[in-house]
Design a protein around this nucleic acid. Structure first.
Lengths: 218, 218
DNA sequence: ATAATCTAACTAACTGGTTAATTAAGTTTC
DNA sequence: GAAACTTAATTAACCAGTTAGTTAGATTAT
């Protein structure tokens, strides 16, 4: 005992376990004992690295939304034309959400806490991560519309629709599994979903070329 | 003091207050004192009518999902042709969700609790409400596909997509308000959303008539 | 080189506040 | 008198956060 593991590893283990616990039970339902147990660490170590439960939750959110932001900005800052950029953005968003089963629930929960005074982190999350993404995507939409490539959609409706298609599928996956009887999270199903989402975005956003129109999946 | 209100009214007041509290904070974050206070009732009365917090939560779920089921079955049991029936179903679903700000959050939360052993109510909710709706909608889809009116969509993907478009918009409304700066829940915005959802469903589900194709909204 | 010291990393055990739930003894209205 | 409540006190559990340490290994002093 004593200073066995690297401190960075312990901190990371705590963050990972906390993400799991918060995603599964929400901040009120999360148990610090459970986090410590899953991180194979004493509970007091949580308070050694993080001030309190709220601070730990904030660190988890920074981790998750920070990852999302840098992922999609990798695409949004590229110089693709609007069509390709939107498809690449949706694909990157989808892949990020699909890459970690914690993220959709974590984000879904935080979005539901956006009421006044419900979350002390929501303003930070919006200002640092969500608002910049939204602004950048809206700009791409505006440019595509100006170029005549996109239909004149309203970003305030279109952007949350895209997020809904992606996030809801994963956050409701456990329930869907009970309803339809198979696992919606197998690689095949996820790939299917990805194609369906991209197809929908295309159909709903791109001005149809005079000759062709691709079929609907979903 | 005494037996002032009708018992049915007190019970209903408790259920309504509980729905609010559970929707806002989740079952773990909900406070029984807060429920009693908001229902203008003594806390002991909660336990007079309901065994415990879990039972009360179960009653709230029965109330909400039961209302949804009878609403949409009013449409699904009618004898409209597939196209009209699907549009009427989506419209009824949308209107029900839009009618009460508690429902989207309540349902969203319950869907996220569908993990093994997380909720003792989920199996009942799925069996009594969601599964029957899903089965009936899938049947309509199958019929429309057989008739050649619908594209050959996969219900296991298409149904959750419809739900996502409806529920996510409302459950993330508080956050959207902070991002876009206006209230997404004004009657005008809600009507806009309703039209956008119906348009998307149409575009994604109906086989395009050879001559016309309506424009995209949202 | 090696003993003494320091410090970051970590733990076991406890504490105190919160909260669900119970109970007992009433009050009011039909 | 019975159903529909209230008041208020209480219990038991739970759980976030604290305290008072222990340990391993690096640093310094000799």
């Amino acid at each position: 005992m004593g200073s066995r593991g690297q401190p960075a590893e312990s901190r990371a283990a705590i963050l990972k376990a906390a993400a799991r616990e918060f995603a599964e039970h929400g901040i009120a339902g999360a148990r610090t004992d459970a986090i410590a147990r899953e991180a194979c660490v004493n509970k007091a170590l949580l308070y050694y690295y993080f001030q309190d439960k709220e601070t730990l939750y904030g660190a988890v959110l920074d981790d998750a939304f920070g990852g999302l932001k840098s992922t999609v900005f990798g695409v949004l800052d590229g110089d693709l034309p609007p069509r390709q950029k939107m498809l690449a953005y949706v694909g990157a968003y989808f892949d990020f959400i699909a890459s970690n089963p914690m993220y959709p629930r974590l984000m879904q929960r935080e979005m539901m806490r956006a009421r006044e005074g419900q979350s002390q982190h929501i303003d930070k999350v919006i200002k640092n991560y969500i608002q910049p993404i939204f602004a950048r995507v809206s700009e791409v939409l505006r440019q595509g519309i100006a170029d005549g490539e996109f239909r004149p959609v309203n970003p305030a409706h279109f952007v949350p629709s895209m997020v809904a298609m992606i996030v809801f599928y994963f956050s409701s996956a456990p329930m869907m599994q009970k309803i339809v009887g198979f696992n919606p999270l197998t690689p095949e199903r996820v790939a299917e979903r990805r194609a369906a989402v991209l197809d929908f975005i295309s159909a709903g956003l791109f001005r149809p070329s005079p000759n062709a129109r691709q079929g609907a999946r979903s």
